[in-house]
């Protein structure tokens, strides 16, 4: 059925008279001065209801414990990532319990869906134009880590923040290396479906905490 449908659809499209293909006009996404970039990135994220902390490479685990104190009893981490290894090696007893996301989702569904308060991921970049985190999940850092826990904590290095998405796609050569999934995140999960009133955490995280590592 699908084969006949394919032939018929393409046949009809091909039978139509061709029109000329218009040229693509030049367009540049907004750019910012170097000293404005990080400020804009942090400020926009805050406008989008995220909580932003500027931290140091040495001090972020401590800052993370402070941020989560009283808010989360458990923190899910990706144990094979750099940040996951660091926390496993240096985590205190009174901090939230670390839960490793170390097995396929089928074996961890209950924990993921209902059993953890926070999840930690590392963004591969930030975008200043829109206040956006770029997540590039892989075998080590699964996709649901940034989605199911009510609090999403994201680490992003200040040096990876760029002006805009086209620049990032070009510089990192995305078109030849798209992974299973890329997600751009700009704030916590939200909806305005009820009388255009904003409400957070409708399906994904209710809170987004961004730790910007100054490097």
């Amino acid at each position: 059925m699908s084969e006949t449908a394919r032939a018929n659809i393409l046949g009809r499209l091909r039978a139509a008279r061709r029109t000329s293909i218009p040229a693509l006009p030049a367009w540049d996404a907004p750019a910012y001065a170097v000293d404005e970039r990080i400020g804009r990135f942090c400020q926009l994220l805050e406008t989008l209801h995220a909580e932003v902390h500027r931290v140091t490479e040495a001090g972020w685990p401590q800052q993370l414990r402070t941020v989560l104190a009283g808010r989360a009893a458990s923190l899910m981490v990706a144990p094979e990532t750099e940040s996951g290894r660091r926390l496993a090696a240096d985590w205190s007893q009174d901090a939230p319990r670390l839960v490793p996301y170390d097995r396929p989702v089928e074996e961890m569904k209950t924990t993921l869906v209902h059993g953890v308060d926070a999840g930690l991921t590392t963004a591969v970049a930030g975008i200043a134009e829109t206040g956006t985190l770029v997540l590039w999940p892989d075998a080590a850092e699964p996709r649901l880590l940034s989605l199911l826990p009510p609090i999403h904590v994201a680490l992003v290095r200040a040096s990876t923040v760029v002006d805009n998405l086209p620049e990032l796609m070009r510089d990192q050569g995305w078109s030849s290396r798209m992974p299973t999934n890329v997600v751009l995140v700009s704030g916590p999960s939200k909806t305005a479906d009820i009388e255009q009133t904003l409400a957070y955490g409708v399906h994904g995280p209710k809170e987004l905490v961004v730790l910007v590592i100054e490097d």
Partner: peptide, 12 residues
């Protein structure tokens, strides 16, 4: 300016 999530799926 942008939606909360832009989800790009390229494979299973």
């Amino acid at each position: 300016p942008i939606t909360t999530y832009v989800n790009m799926i390229t494979s299973p």
